[in-house]
Computed example of a mutant assay.
Amino acid sequence: MGSQLHNDLLLLQISAVLKKIRHSRGLTQEDVYNDTGIHISRMEAGHVNFTITTLQRLCEYFEVSLVDFFKNVQKHGRT
C-alpha cells in the first residue's frame, strides 16, 4: 500500500470546483501560477493528489473558506 491514499472521484470533483472558481474570477491558469507559484493546471486535470495546505493556499487566494469550498465539492458530487 502506498504512502498516500488516492480517490480519483474526489480528485475530479475537487478539480472541477477549482476550475469553476477560477473561471468565475476571470483568471487564467497562468494568472494563478504567477500569483501563487501553484501549477493549478495539474490540479484541475485531476491527476495530482495535492496537499490540503496547497488547497488552503488556493482558497485564500480565491477568498473562499475551506468549508465553503468543500460545500461546493459536495454539491458537485450530487449533480
Rank of each mutant, 00 (worst) to 15 (best):
L9M: 11
L55N: 04
L11Y: 08
S41W: 04
I38E: 02
K75E: 15
H47W: 10
T28Y: 06
I40N: 01
R78K: 12
V17M: 03
F70R: 03
L5Y: 14
M43S: 08
F69Y: 04
K20V: 09
G46R: 03
L12R: 15
T51F: 05
G77L: 01
L11E: 12
L18E: 04
N49C: 05
Q13C: 06
S24R: 13
A45E: 14
H47R: 12
K19N: 12
V64Q: 03
M43E: 07
R57E: 11
T36A: 02
F50T: 12
I38K: 02
D35A: 06
N7E: 14
N7M: 09
H47G: 11
Q56W: 15
I21M: 10
R25I: 05
F70G: 01
L5D: 08
L27H: 02
K19H: 15
Q29I: 09
F70T: 02
L10C: 01
L5V: 11
A45G: 14
Q74L: 11
H76Y: 05
F69G: 01
V64F: 05
G37H: 12
R57Q: 12
C59H: 06
E30H: 12
A16Y: 09
S65E: 02
R25T: 06
N72P: 01
V32P: 01
K75W: 05
L10G: 02
D31L: 00
D68E: 07
D35M: 00
H47Q: 13
G26V: 10
S3T: 14
L58R: 04
L11D: 08
K71H: 03
I38M: 06
C59F: 10
A16I: 07
R57G: 03
M1W: 04
T79G: 13
T28C: 09
G46Q: 00
T36M: 02
V67F: 09
Q4C: 11
L18G: 04
Y33L: 04
F62C: 03
L18H: 01
G2M: 07
I21Q: 04
K71T: 07
Q56M: 06
A16G: 09
V73P: 00
L9I: 09
K19P: 01
Q4E: 14
F69I: 05
N49W: 03
A45Y: 07
R25M: 06
Q74W: 06
D31H: 03
L27Y: 02
I14R: 09
S3R: 11
F50D: 11
V48H: 07
R78H: 07
Y61M: 03
R22H: 06
L18C: 13
H76K: 07
H39D: 15
V73F: 03
Q29F: 09
S65Y: 04
